[in-house]
Nucleic acid binder design. Structure first.
Lengths: 228, 228
DNA sequence: TAGATTGTTAATCGATTAACAATC
DNA sequence: TAGATTGTTAATCGATTAACAATC
């Protein structure tokens, strides 16, 4: 096993390859070349091969490319989502509900284990399929986490005033990886072991497109655009 | 004017500084040091000063730091959102409505010019403030774009089956910067001038936190986490 | 003054690109 | 076979880090 020094940059590209392959929806028994991956992701074919080389993904066949099914499996291994990850969403507003029902999660082997809100009864009106995701009151959060030690990942979509309190509760309850959507600068509370907190923001890609448009940096016609 | 070679990397960090400053909500007449920017963004103070140096933002004062108000103005200039950018959202589902009403856009001088859907009457139930954003039927899209030549940016949140068609219509109507949320590989249609298409995906940060958690790469307690 | 913080240069580090032999 | 595509190495390029004189 090489698999060391996997930088954030590499992880990002691996996610991109994985996403693009899922979006293409090719039959698992066909092959895809690094050149074709360049066409759908915008990452150069040299970069693609370099990444696979460094990650020990040596499954390509000359003249054909990489077997799609096997490639997906390898990418999942690198992303460490080969053993079903389980996630909860805390805060069931429009964004929280959209995330909780986001269809691609299923296909990515990420299980949506629960959706928490202060008004569980009201949430059902924002859900498309009321039975797809279990909905709980936030008061049940601690009990839930104690009963589900496999759930260590959370998406935080509560109003910004509630975000720091909820982060503290999540970490105290054992959550160790959080994506935060509240526009606040939060602090990771002291706890056992490392905690990963990533602050995301809906619409942050807008900066990028506006900048690129104003600097004439668009893509060529027929291109699939850039990721993220 | 230096201001050349502004890489995607730099733009990303500039957005991060800008977002963090907005989130902090400091009074405009106070100062912030590169060290403090490191604490709230995770970007090293050396990197911060290097970025400002390359972008000709030489407004710091020894022993005090950078004046917040002026720094925000400079960052806006770099991001080219100093002259009110105008955006439309096409597809008023949960995500589309959340984006259209996303409060920070206002503070960022990004104007939400319209929200388009095939069922404008139904949309109001997903809006919090029914009068904050004008809602139109998608049939009015072409007329709207012709009447509003200042609107050249769109966020695409329609169902995936409709995404390519809608992208074609947007580009034909004069839109030149698009953030796409549909999980499809789209093609930029031929047109006058460059088009910027960025494919975003709600929840893509999940890959990052899951990876980092599984590799023990969390942040120290009391840290504000990483961005994006 | 002494300490803190900038602007700026130089050194290091890592990431991307280019090239090509191997081979299916 | 000839052409295409990989795996891998080496060369280039750019980005980050470190250091420090200037100075408020």
């Amino acid at each position: 096993m090489k698999r060391k020094n996997v930088s954030q940059r590499v992880i990002r590209r691996i996610s991109i390859y994985y996403e693009a392959l899922l979006k293409l929806g090719l039959p698992g028994n066909c092959f895809i070349s690094s050149q074709k991956l360049q066409e759908i992701t915008g990452v150069s074919c040299n970069q693609v091969r370099q990444d696979f080389f460094h990650l020990d993904i040596a499954i390509g066949r000359q003249k054909k490319g990489y077997p799609v099914q096997q490639l997906l499996e390898e990418l999942k291994k690198v992303l460490s989502i080969d053993s079903h990850a389980a996630v909860i969403v805390v805060g069931a507003g429009r964004l929280g509900c959209a995330l909780a029902e986001f269809d691609l999660f299923r296909v990515r082997h990420i299980t949506m284990a629960g959706l928490f809100d202060i008004d569980p009864a009201g949430v059902v009106y924002r859900l498309k399929n009321a039975h797809a995701v279990p909905v709980y009151h936030v008061d049940q959060l601690e009990d839930f986490l104690a009963a589900h030690p496999e759930v260590r990942t959370a998406i935080l979509t509560v109003p910004e005033d509630a975000a720091q309190d909820m982060l503290d509760r999540l970490v105290r309850g054992g959550i160790r990886a959080i994506v935060n959507y509240a526009p606040r600068i939060l602090r990771v509370p002291p706890c056992e072991g490392p905690v990963t907190l990533v602050n995301d923001c809906i619409g942050s890609s807008l900066y990028k497109v506006i900048f690129e448009m104003n600097h004439g940096l668009g893509q060529a016609p027929d291109s699939p655009g850039v990721q993220g």
